[in-house]
Each structure stands twice: as structure tokens, then as C-alpha cells.
């Protein structure tokens, strides 16, 4: 991380991402929250670039900022009568406590841990490498099994989504006693 430009980029992007997250939390309107969420996703993609994870950064933009955000827009549009406000539930205080607790603990651990002990000398940045082809090799080599299982997962997620929302063909079935 020698380059001052990268250092600056880190701080700016980190501020954008965390700020976007906070806005998702406090925004009054659900659609506004969604916009800030996309902002956070984009900031995150930028952070990935600073970590030399170019492929992932692009995938992040495509999948998160693209697909998932669009899915959410659809979901919000498909539920027109639902409240649009981004209200908090009865669990706000426990939620805050849990979130702040986790943040605090992890940040504390991250700061106090002598990460250098992992190897024995101070942390140094690795040489940036092109990741795309290497990732491809890993996916089709060492991680071929999870790769295949992931495709099964995607397929059945599709089936599941269809099963859940498709219109009923017949009369209501009585699933379980109620």
C-alpha cells in the first residue's frame, strides 16, 4: 500500500461504503435505502479494486449492484400495498446492541492482534497478480465439486422461486394442520 493514491482511495471508499450502510439503516424510505445500498455495494467494489481483486470487483458490481438490487426493486414493486417506510421493529435495541457489540469486538480484535505473527515478519503487500485466469483454474480444478454443487444450488433456487410464486392450478391444498 505504498502509493498515496491507493491510501487516499481506501479512505474515501471506506467512508462511502460505511456511510452508505449507515444511510440504509437510517433512511426513512425503503427506495431511498435501496439507493444507498447500491452506493455501498459500489464503494465495496472500489475497495475490492484496492485489494487487487479486479475480477471480484467486477462481479460485485454485476451481481450485487446489478442483479440483487434489481431483484429488490422488483420485490418492492410487486408488493405495492406494503408500507414503504423503512421502519424499525420492536427489536431495535437488541439489534443495536448485537450489531455494535459485534463491530466493537471484531474491530478491537483486528487492531490488537499481532497479525505479523502469522508468518513472523511484518505485513507486506503481495505482488498484484491477474486473478481471473487463476480463479478459473481453481474453480475447475481444486474447487470443482463446490462449483458443481453451486450450479445445483442455483438450479433449485430457481425451481424454488417458481414453486413459491407461481399461480395455483387447483384448489388450495391443506399443507399441515392449521
Amino acid at each position: 500500500m505504498e502509493s498515496p493514491g491507493v491510501i487516499l482511495a481506501f479512505y474515501v471508499l471506506a467512508a462511502v461504503t460505511v456511510g452508505g450502510c449507515l444511510m440504509v439503516l437510517v433512511a426513512r424510505n425503503l427506495l431511498h435505502a435501496l439507493v444507498f445500498l447500491v452506493l455501498a455495494f459500489l464503494g465495496m467494489a472500489g475497495l475490492f479494486f484496492t485489494l487487487s481483486a479486479d475480477f471480484i470487483a467486477v462481479a460485485q458490481i454485476l451481481i450485487y449492484a446489478g442483479s440483487i438490487a434489481v431483484l429488490m426493486v422488483f420485490a418492492i414493486m410487486l408488493t405495492p400495498l406494503a408500507a414503504r417506510d423503512n421502519a424499525n421493529s420492536l427489536f431495535l435495541l437488541p439489534g443495536l446492541a448485537a450489531g455494535l457489540g459485534i463491530s466493537g469486538i471484531v474491530a478491537f480484535v483486528a487492531v490488537v492482534t499481532p497479525w505479523g505473527e502469522l508468518k513472523g515478519d511484518a505485513l507486506a503487500a503481495a505482488d498484484p497478480v491477474t486473478t481471473v485466469s487463476a480463479i478459473g483454474d481453481l474453480l475447475l480444478g481444486r474447487y470443482v465439486l463446490p462449483f458443481e454443487v453451486a450450479s445445483i444450488l442455483l438450479f433449485f433456487a430457481l425451481i424454488g422461486a417458481i414453486v413459491l410464486v407461481h399461480d395455483r392450478r387447483g384448489p388450495r391444498d391443506s399443507g399441515g394442520a392449521s
Binding site: L145, L153, F156, L164, R168, G175
Partner: peptide, 26 residues
């Protein structure tokens, strides 16, 4: 990674199974 992917696959299938009756409770 295998563990995570297998776990998510079984979980996702179970989520859908829980809702599959598609009545209000399900």
C-alpha cells in the same frame, strides 16, 4: 468452501420446503 456450499444448498432447499404448502402459516 465445500462445507459452505453444501450447507447453503441444503438450507435453501429446506427454506423452500418449509414454505411449500404456500398457505399462510407455511
Amino acid at each position: 468452501i465445500t462445507l459452505f456450499v453444501a450447507l447453503e444448498t441444503t438450507s435453501l432447499a429446506q427454506f423452500i420446503l418449509a414454505g411449500i404448502a404456500r398457505n399462510e402459516r407455511s
